[in-house]
Amino acid sequence: MAPKNRSILRDEPLPDADVHSQGFRQTREAQRSALVEDYVELIADLIEDGNEARQVDIAARLGVAQPTVAKMLARLAADGLVSRKPYRGVFLTDAGRKMARESRDRHQTVEAFLRSLGVSAETARIDAEGIEHHVSAETLEAFRRAMAE
């Protein structure tokens, strides 16, 4: 039987409740922001690729229905991240471009780090898509330092 205040899976005692809950709060916040960041980053990618970011293209690339995209675009517009023009595509605001740059930077760092560990390009790209939203600035910096060595 595990000693009192010890985890069954490890030897350290459980952290203080406030400290312990911090990790769960951070994860929930990352999950909430992940979808927004994915949309904004994809919109930036479509625009930079020389195309307009149209609702139909966003839906196809994310593998979701157009009404789902329409709902998210309304949210992004309300949050000041995108602007929409009738009969045209979606455009990023300054705040949206900033978010897209930060998200892309995190993704590229995580993907490069995974590649430096020997992970295949395809797996690194896919895994980085999830990890990028959950990794802290401290961990990203550690990834960069490890790759520079």
Rank of each mutant, 00 (worst) to 15 (best):
L62V: 04
R54F: 08
D49A: 15
A2K: 10
E122Q: 13
T109F: 01
Q26L: 03
P3M: 05
R32I: 12
I131R: 02
Y87D: 09
D57L: 15
T27L: 05
T109A: 04
A121W: 11
F91Q: 13
L81K: 13
R75F: 12
R125T: 04
R75L: 08
V119S: 05
A34T: 15
Q22E: 10
F24W: 11
H133M: 04
Y87K: 10
A148Y: 06
A128R: 01
L9G: 07
G89A: 10
G23L: 14
Q66W: 02
D38Q: 14
R125Y: 00
L42M: 07
R61E: 13
I126R: 06
A100R: 09
D79C: 00
L35R: 06
Q22A: 03
G118M: 10
D127H: 11
V90N: 12
A148W: 02
L46K: 05
L62R: 09
K85P: 13
V56T: 02
E29R: 14
A142M: 15
E138M: 08
G63K: 12
I126F: 12
T68A: 06
D79E: 03
T109H: 03
T109C: 09
L14S: 04
P13Q: 07
R10E: 13
D18Y: 15
F143P: 11
A137R: 13
D45R: 10
G80Q: 00
Q55G: 04
R115V: 00
D49R: 14
M1W: 11
A34F: 15
Q31C: 07
R88T: 15
L9Y: 05
G50K: 11
L117E: 07
K71C: 04
D45T: 00
M72K: 02
A74S: 05
E37Y: 11
D79H: 09
A53K: 11
R106A: 05
E138V: 12
R84D: 11
I8R: 13
V69R: 05
D105H: 01
K85A: 13
L46Q: 10
G118N: 05
A17N: 05
G130R: 15
G23K: 15
D127A: 05
G63P: 01
P13G: 01
K71T: 01
L73H: 10
V69D: 01
A146E: 00
P3F: 02
R54K: 14
Q108M: 06
D11A: 03
R125I: 03
V69E: 05
R28L: 08
R6P: 04
G96Y: 08
Y87H: 03
D38C: 08
R25V: 08
A128K: 07
Y39P: 02
T93W: 13
F113H: 06
V64Y: 03
D57E: 15
M99A: 03
V90R: 13
Q55L: 03
S120I: 09
V19N: 12
R32A: 05
A148H: 04
T109L: 08
S21F: 00
E122T: 14
E129V: 08
T93L: 10
R145I: 14
V110N: 12
V82D: 00
L42D: 01
Q66Y: 07
V40A: 06
M147Y: 14
P15W: 12
L76C: 08
L114S: 10
D11L: 07
M72P: 07
L14H: 07
I131N: 07
G50D: 02
R75M: 07
A34Y: 15
V56E: 14
L9D: 06
